[in-house]
Each structure stands twice: as C-alpha cells, then as structure tokens.
Design a protein around this nucleic acid. Sequence first.
DNA 1: ACCCTGCCTGCAAGCGCTTTCATTTGCAGG
DNA 2: CCTGCAAATGAAAGCGCTTGCAGGCAGGGT
Lengths: 340, 340
Amino acid sequence: MPRTPNPRLEDVARAAGVSLATASRALSEPDMVREDTRDRVREAVAMLGYVPHGAARALATRRTKTIGAVFPPVDNPIFAGATHALAQELSAAGYTLLLASHDYDLAAELAATRALVERGADGMVLVGLDHLPETLALLVRAGVPYEIAWSLDGSGHHNCIGFSHHAASIRVAQHLMDLGHREIAVIAGDTKCNDRARERLAGVKDALASRGLKLPARRVVEASFSVANGRAAFSKLLAQAPGFTAVIGGNDPLAIGALFECRARGIEVPGQMSVAGFDDIELAGELSPGLTTVRVPSAEIGHEAGRRLLARLAGKSVPRVKEMPAPLIVRGTTGRVGKR
Amino acid sequence: MPRTPNPRLEDVARAAGVSLATASRALSEPDMVREDTRDRVREAVAMLGYVPHGAARALATRRTKTIGAVFPPVDNPIFAGATHALAQELSAAGYTLLLASHDYDLAAELAATRALVERGADGMVLVGLDHLPETLALLVRAGVPYEIAWSLDGSGHHNCIGFSHHAASIRVAQHLMDLGHREIAVIAGDTKCNDRARERLAGVKDALASRGLKLPARRVVEASFSVANGRAAFSKLLAQAPGFTAVIGGNDPLAIGALFECRARGIEVPGQMSVAGFDDIELAGELSPGLTTVRVPSAEIGHEAGRRLLARLAGKSVPRVKEMPAPLIVRGTTGRVGKR
DNA sequence: ACCCTGCCTGCAAGCGCTTTCATTTGCAGG
DNA sequence: CCTGCAAATGAAAGCGCTTGCAGGCAGGGT
C-alpha cells in the first residue's frame, strides 16, 4: 500500500497558516500562543492526523520522556505487580516504560542497561544490589539517574527503595523460634546474582545463631522460584536431613510447594510441620490454612520507584533511601512445635 | 557533580583520526571499513565510553529498534509470562520493548498506543480484539505494523496470533457434559472490553445449547481475575442458583477460588462439584487434585508475536493468522456427575 | 606510462523538532 | 495619531547521527 509519508510539523504549520516555530509552541507550550492561533494549529493537527516525531523531539530537547527498567524475570508475580504499578505511575505523568528483563544474568543485565541508555532513557530502575560494576558505572557516566528497587544499599552511594531482606527474614525465623522450633530448614531462592535470596538466607542463619542454634548446610536447599521446585526441594530436605519441624521458603511459591508436598505426604501443617514463606502473593492468604509470610509491597515499590524518579527529573530532591515496610503476616501454617 | 557532556560520534572520530562518516560506518556497517580503521574506532569508543545517541540515529534512519506492546494488567500471570517472552525475543534481535499496560480501559489503551507510536515504535503488539476504532486506525495511518495477540480475528484484516477462545471453551463444556453434567455454572472474567472473556462465556453457552441445554443468567457471575473474587463468585452462585454440579472459571484464579470455596464448605471435588478453569497457570497442575483447564501457551504467544513482528520488519512475509494450540488438560477436579 | 576498476574514506545534506533571538503586532496611554 | 511596551510570531541554528555521492589511492591491464 502506497502510504503518503507521515505529516510533519511543517505540514501542520502550513495548514494552519503559521510558522514552524509557532506550531511547535502551540503544541508544547500552549500558553505562549494566542488562543485562536492555538486552535487553528490543533485543528490542523486533527485534520492531518499528525503524530509528533519523538526522536526528533528527543534530539532537540535531550529528553525522551521514557524510563528504563531492567528486571529479573517479569513473570515472577512479584515483579509483574511492580512492573504494572511502575508503568501506570509513569504513564500518568506522560512517561513511558522501556522494559527489559533477564534471567538472573548480570551480563544480560548490562547489555539491557546499555540498550536502554542508548535509547535515551531519562531514568532507570534496577532491581537489587547484584550488578556488574560496569552497569552502574555506565549510568553514572551517562548521567542517567537511577533507583535501585527491592534492596537497601548500605554504602549510601545509590538511591534506593526497598526493605531489609535480612531483617525481615530474621522476623520470620524468630517467629518460628518463639513457637518453640529448634530444627529449621530453608528452601532458599537461587542465591546466585540475587542479593535478596542471599540476605533472606543469611537472615535465618543469623537469627538462629543469635539464639545459639545452627543452620547446617544439609538443612538448606536452593531452588529457583516455582511451586514444583518447592515440592521437590522439600522432598530433598526430608530425604537428606529429616527431623526439622519448620521450613522457611525463600519466596511464597517455594513455601507453597513445601506445603503441598506436606499435604501429599500426610504431614500435618502446622501440627507436624510449620511452613513460612516470603512475598505474600495473593494465594498465600487464600490457602487454608493461610501461609505465614512476609508482606512485600511490590506494587508500592513500583509506584514509589516511579514517583521518586519523576520527582528527581523534575528537579526535586528525594531522600536517598526509602525504606518500605515488610511486616510478618502470621497465618495458619505456623504453630507451636509438636502441637498436634 | 560537573559532568562533562557525553562524547559524541564526532569525538570518537577525532580520537580515531577518521571522519564522522567513517566512524559511523565502523560501528554500524563494520565491513565497509578496513580492519585497522575499524579497530581504531572501536578503541576510541572504548576509551571515551561512547554511547550512541539513539534519538539521533532514529531520526536519521527512521528506525528505533523498539517494539511497543500495550497489555492489559501485566500482573496477570498470563500476560506477565508473555511479556517476559516477548522482551527476551526482542532483545535477542537487538530490539527493546516499550511497554504500556492498562486496566481494561480502551481510552487508556488508545492513549498508550499513541504514546508508543510517538516514541517511534517500529512495530506494536496489542492484546485481543476489543479496541477503539481510533487505536488501529492510528497504527495504520502511521504505517506501524502490528500483531494482535491472544485472539484470532475473523475479519482477516489484522495480523494475529492466538487461538479461538470460543472453541476452547466449547471443549471445556463438552468435557463436562460428557461426564454427565447438565447443570453448569460459570464464573466469567470481566466481559467488558475483553473479547476473550466474552468468547469463553459464549462458548459455554453455545456448547450447552448444542445439546439442548440452557445457561440461565443466574448461573453466570462475572468477576475480575483473582482467587478471592473466585471464592466470592462461587458463593454467590450457590446462593442465587444452587443445584449446579459443575462450574467453569473464566480463568484459573477464578476456578481456583471456586475450588477453595468448595473445600471451605466441605463440598467434595470432583465428587459433588466439578471445577474447570482456563489458562493453565503453574498452580493448576500443582494442586491436588489438579485443576482441569485449558492450556494457554502464553509464553509461546509472546515469543511468536515478537518473531512475527521482527520477520515483518525484516521484509519477510508471515501468514496473516497464526493459530496456537490450546488443548484441554483434564486433571482431577472434573469427574462424572453424582459420583461420590 | 596511462587509464580503469574497486575499495575506502570524506563531504555535506538532511532526518523533524525545539529554542534563541530578532521582529512584528496589538494595544494602552499621551 | 503617535509612542512605547509587552505579547505573539518568525527565521534560523542546531540536536547527533546516517548516507548518497564524489574523490583518492592502489593495483592490474594495455
């Protein structure tokens, strides 16, 4: 089909009988032009079906009204919620989301980051603290403001919004110990390239240590995020180090997998086995008994990351670190040890 | 911090002792320049930390290497999986994803589409068939190729990749009728602005009709996607039109909600109540009994949508319509009527 | 020795918009 | 009716890159 080339602002200007400059102003600085002129231009725009050429505008203004985000697998519900929230927040401000996702691969993350910077992202959001040094260096050199989401950075060098996975994890472990549990197992998320999973695991270890308990290596299994993996991991724990009375999942799907495996084996929860998770996905509250877990405000993190970035781009300053609440939600899957 | 302005290609050229044109070619048409020249340019790039300016390139080439996608809530796991797959597919080809999501709001969809077109998306993917007429018109006028994902378009006007929700839904209903069910209820997804939900509902209706059965309005409840809503909807059905022996959820979360509500009320599944869903999210297969549902290949749809768009951008032609399989997966939540 | 071929390289003209600066216009006041 | 000032408009110079075209240079044929 022989399309006529898309109309340019010049065509609009001609149709409205004004200069290019005026047409431009009528659209982007409406109150710099007289009302009737503005209307004529708008009419011409509508008539011609004019759509501004973003690249040209970006070249001239050095702004793309675009924010980049590089996320671990977006199909993890926890990131999906944040992505949606972020996209909503941005679009309300006339910004658009440039999204890249990787499978916990730092080199891929760097490549994606570069791609987004090349495309002119005005700001970026990254997840967690595990990055190749080049990744952040690239952002700094290019002068692109960024927010680190999910984790809290101790160094004070980066803007970030999240919570302490270590502290939250300690709350989970203490809750279990308060119920009398002494033999605890962990199904950790993949700790490679994932500081959140590492900190959660470390939190359990430290909490136990603080009461003189140990977390032996055989009581820890790593598995990547899924219910099926949770089941398998739980079976593995049972096989290699039985005798524990509680299991902590590095995230809810893993914990739910453990829970299902208990059901399948006739292990009563919480009578014979307490199970706790992390993230508080919707399902956690809908199971019966409900899953004890840590509420991670992922949508709020997405919103707030967007808000902070937009504020910074507007020249406002924001506190370097924003800590979000991550309360322990006690439901029915955890109970006193040994209680039938 | 007083940043030096980002280096431009001109700086690279100067550092490498070549012209702007040669530097450009060294980077984007490597085998148009002699090897040693190319190396000198690359060296200069590395030394200066040069990052190409996408907007400038886009302006000159009229290509952004960017694909836009406008999705319903990305936090629906089914779309999240597709988003991830799409992003992966694109990035492998050097493309990046511009993502917008809306909450089943056609005006928002149009606005998002416009935003992406303005930002120069080389191609677009939209979900389903419910759009404002302006949305597709905009794409056509701007000459942006697009793929419609999830649904199959009957008109033959649009490129699309998906499956027949109507037909798949009929398979579910027939399966239930084959098990002897005559009184069937439906928890439909929100049918407003959502042809998938409508077609799924219509499929059940038509399947029943084809065997002389009716689906009275009081046997249908609409609810938006979530386990909690599924539970509530199931309760409502029970209250307003008891006596049904099977319930079909418009998507898995709704079906799982019904399932949980059955458990909570001591209704045996499938003994007293058969439950079927739609989408085959991971959980469906992990429950016990497993949820009978329709497998929707969402990741494959994401991949294939990307592949098709990239192929078209590369000048290849692809069949206008790509139908994906959406088989019925029979698991344990459906059984013969009345069997205890 | 001369011309022609090919391969590299460089010049310069855009790509479509914004924005500075200069100019014109409109209007109140003298 | 003219002056002066503010407001509205216009001309033109980029923003940083690609690319068509032309020029330069080496090597082979005559």
